[in-house]
Design a protein around this nucleic acid. Structure first.
Length: 407
RNA sequence: CGGGGCGUAGCACAGUUGGUAGCGCGCAGCGUUUGGGACGCUGAGGUCGCAGGUUCAAGUCCUGUCGCCCCGACCA
């Protein structure tokens, strides 16, 4: 991308309605634009980050046999009434709307009910199982209080995956595969080091669920963990019974703030029973399908990465999620000429700052945006036919021969 | 939803006892600059969140309403 053609501008001061550091940088660097509290637009750079995160998730899920779909955002109340979740008393985060012709509709807060109903059309035999279906989809949740930029919002992008199995064995096998896939995903997103699979409340379906919690001061959850972090649990399940079950003492555990970046649940027949998702087994008996659900808040993950990967000057994206790998600056007449040539061959990986500005402003924006490598070509570097490459994370610079730069 | 703070130009802010709105950044033009947000001159940009009310006169006072931030509660 040519910076001069971008409609987005960077800001020198942070909008006063953002207080989280990562959120301030995302606004200042032009990744997102705020519409309302908890409601954001993703600008070209922000969209590229989201797409990079999605690509990693998609790859890992496809690898364990999942199939991608895209379901509707407008939802039929009927299956929700059957599971008793349509009532605002039962689910207080509903956004509801209505049809011009009469009748209510819901704006997708999640998709257990619709997908269970949808799968009725396709599952009728044990031969159809197991099956794993996921999507990247916008969810709407009428949160009482949105906060921390894109970390807790009323409209957000979520990857939700649902598994359908014919037996507990089959279910457990996939549940485990999903755990492993999640770990690989967080590793590839650059937050694996600080992300822990955590025992959490099972909500209404099961005794426990597993959350994936990433350490960050801005997180809303408090997690407790032992010395080698082999046991990690959410504060909400910190009680004697659980401690005994996990075989740890309260005194061994220390606490930290963390943000939930994923959650996996065993649903059992919670939805398949009331909605009648059944299949015939080998003996011709009707059985209820066993389900699981597995979520990752894609936009929240982006917020968590931004929050964790930044310094006084701005963002520091991990290479795999960065919107561009290189930020190219040409200084001086000849430097600019060479930069143009370089850019033309690598338009998709280079953010080329071709604006008619002094170098200092370009350096500042390169750092604010957090592009992993800054490439500078100037008379100074051209004297030896080289370019200077600076690593955003480490600050280290090195000179590389122009014809040897690997893009 | 309880408590606290706040809405004035794209962003950040000032605006005295009520007297008809200002600074910085950014933006436009010209010129000088060009390896760390440079400078000079000129200029554009506001129904002061919205709606009522009080007053000769409201950014300022009153009522209502919408929205924003923080703490807490809540969070399949």
């Amino acid at each position: 991308m040519r910076f001069s053609k971008s409609f987005v501008k960077t800001l020198r001061t942070a909008p006063k309605d953002e207080t989280a550091r990562g959120a301030q940088f995302l606004s200042r660097a032009g990744y997102v634009h705020k519409e309302l509290a908890g409601i954001y637009d993703y600008l070209p750079l922000g969209l590229r980050v989201l797409e990079n995160i999605k690509a990693i998730i998609r790859e890992e899920l496809n690898n364990i046999g999942c199939q991608e779909v895209l379901m509707s955002s407008l939802q039929n109340p009927e299956p929700w009434q059957k599971t008793d979740r349509w009532d605002i008393e039962k689910m207080d985060i509903w956004f509801k709307t209505e049809l011009a012709a009469g009748g209510e509709l819901g704006l997708a807060p999640t998709h257990e009910e619709p997908i269970t109903k949808m799968m009725q059309s396709y599952i009728s035999s044990y031969k159809d199982l197991p099956v794993y279906v996921y999507q990247f989809q916008t969810k709407f949740r009428n949160e009482l209080r949105a906060k921390s930029g894109i970390m807790r919002t009323r409209e957000f992008l979520m990857k939700d995956l649902y598994s359908f199995a014919s037996s507990e064995d089959e279910h457990n096998k996939f549940y485990h595969a999903a755990e492993q896939a999640y770990k690989r995903i967080y590793d590839r997103l650059g937050i694996g080091q600080d992300t822990f699979q955590t025992f959490a409340s099972g909500g209404v379906f099961a005794k426990y669920s597993h959350e994936f919690q990433t350490l960050t001061d801005i997180g809303e959850d408090t997690i407790y963990y032992n010395a080698d972090k082999s046991v990690v649990l959410n504060e909400e399940v910190l009680n004697d019974e659980v401690l005994t079950e996990l075989g740890v003492q309260r005194e061994e555990l220390q606490s930290a703030k963390a943000a939930e970046v994923g959650n996996i649940f065993t649903l059992g027949t919670k939805y398949s029973a009331p909605l009648g998702l059944v299949f015939n087994n080998k003996d011709g008996e009707r059985k209820i399908v066993l389900m699981g659900c597995y979520g990752i808040g894609v936009s929240r993950v982006m917020g968590v990465i931004a929050e964790k990967s930044c310094d006084e000057r701005g963002l520091v994206w991990p290479e795999q999620v960065a919107p561009y790998k290189y930020y190219l600056i040409g200084i001086g007449k000849e430097g600019t000429k060479q930069a143009e040539i370089l850019y033309r061959d690598h338009e998709n990986t280079i953010l080329y700052d071709d604006r008619n500005l002094r170098p200092g402003e370009k350096f500042a924006d390169a750092e604010l945006m957090g592009i992993p490598y800054r490439v500078v070509i100037s008379d100074k570097t051209l004297a030896s036919n080289q370019a200077e490459i600076t690593n955003r994370a480490t600050g280290e610079s090195k000179l590389v021969d122009l014809n040897q730069i690997q893009f």
